[in-house]
Design a protein around this nucleic acid. Structure first.
Lengths: 230, 230
DNA sequence: CGGTTTCTTGAACGAGGTCAAGTTGTGTGG
DNA sequence: CCACACAACTTGACCTCGTTCAAGAAACCG
């Protein structure tokens, strides 16, 4: 027990640092009730955290950088389900296997939490159950919003929503630094890389944004971007 | 630490009971452990169970019939998030309000389970936490699948997936009775009613399905339908 | 530097949307 | 039982938005 306390404490410090501006609770999971934190892991861009079909032995919290979860279609195309930034948690499964792949978008550090079954976990500690529940609900809300976005919106509506989503997560003001490529954005929004590029260029011509470089986007007219999705 | 956060976030773990048999038990929630089952409610087609923005005082289990959850866009169009059939649970929220509307597709009966305040952790049934968790995870998985479907698939792939999804839920064999209109299907798949109709007609011409009436679909060639999504 | 990857832009094409007309099905009242 | 009205569905013709194909510009890096 003293062993696990030591592990927990060192990990807590590491995680805490990366959680300073997370939009949700910043405490980590206690080292009990079916969750055991492993050492933090580092991944380089495009490196795989786990693949679709891998045994789901853990879920993960992002300490720094950005991770994407995605699925590959038989024709080689890719659909990105979600991006996870600092402080966010991904990789929950009820089944034995991961249903999606997870890959690093940028250089990033994640902490794995080995599971011993959610039933054990939920039954043993209120705080863990509540935390985990809240993370899953967050995922659910985002997934539902994503479905709505993909269903009935034009390319420019999708891109406006994407930019506003990214801006909301990094409350750094009106300039956002995109961690992902145009291809990532396209695969997230169900568009092609060309349409993403063209639409962003059009936004700049319309005075909605400023592209100081391909990845650095200034949101010049937040109101205008919001109005696109009415 | 953040006990209060955990308590706040675990409202729903406190608000459930008696879902003994995963994944979709048909027994009702016992009236204990923070859940109060109301009298079952009847709704006629297109009637509203709750609207987007309504206070989320309860979640619901479908006893019979089919319910849809959806969102309306400013231009009057509609995106359907999910269909819920017998034994399925919908309407969880972590926030104060419902983020989507819920409406009856067919004549249906649902049972509401009222949420209590934040102070009901006492008297909680541990065994039950995993059950609610499993319902929410089920919603999450379906929402993720829905996103993948909407993102990068053609009209015929969407419709093939839709038919197979409906068939999987009503294990009645190779003939399914659709509860929903073409408009519902279109709004679920992000297509127009005309494209849905045209595509189904084409499926019939190709010998994939048999349309004995508009709502009654025989899945003649399951293999062929599956191959559409490779 | 030169090679590679990422991003942008243009031109032509096509899947699905839009508009419009016609058909089927269903409930109602005579 | 039929006639009518109305909603749901189907089908056709045309058009648009986003894709595809192709080429070039810009950023990145050994």
């Amino acid at each position: 027990m003293s062993m696990s306390l030591a592990v927990r404490d060192s990990r807590f410090t590491a995680v805490q640092a990366g959680l300073a501006q997370a939009p949700w609770p910043t405490d980590s999971f206690p080292d009990k009730a079916g969750v055991v934190a492993g050492a933090s892991l580092h991944f380089t861009p495009d490196q795989e955290v786990y693949a679709e079909g891998d045994e789901a032995t853990a879920f993960y919290k992002v300490v720094s950088g950005v991770v994407r979860t995605c699925k590959f279609l038989s024709d080689g195309r890719r659909q990105i389900d979600a991006f996870y930034g600092e402080g966010e948690v991904f990789g929950f499964e009820t089944g034995r296997e991961h249903r999606l792949s997870a890959e690093a978008v940028s250089d990033c550090v994640v902490v794995p939490y080995r599971r011993r079954g959610f039933d054990t976990l939920a039954g043993r500690d209120d705080r863990v159950a509540g935390q985990l529940f809240s993370y899953v609900m967050r995922c659910l809300e985002r997934s539902q919003d994503h479905s709505l976005l993909l269903g009935r919106r034009s390319a420019s509506q999708k891109l406006a929503a994407f930019l506003l989503e990214m801006a909301a997560r990094r409350p750094g003001g009106a300039v956002i630094e995109l961690a992902m490529t145009r291809q990532d954005i396209a695969d997230y929004l169900g568009l092609t890389i060309e349409t993403v590029s063209r639409t962003l260029s059009q936004f700049e011509r319309d005075g909605l944004i400023t592209l100081s470089s391909a990845r650095r986007v200034g949101l010049t007219d937040l109101r205008g971007l919001r109005e696109l999705n009415a």
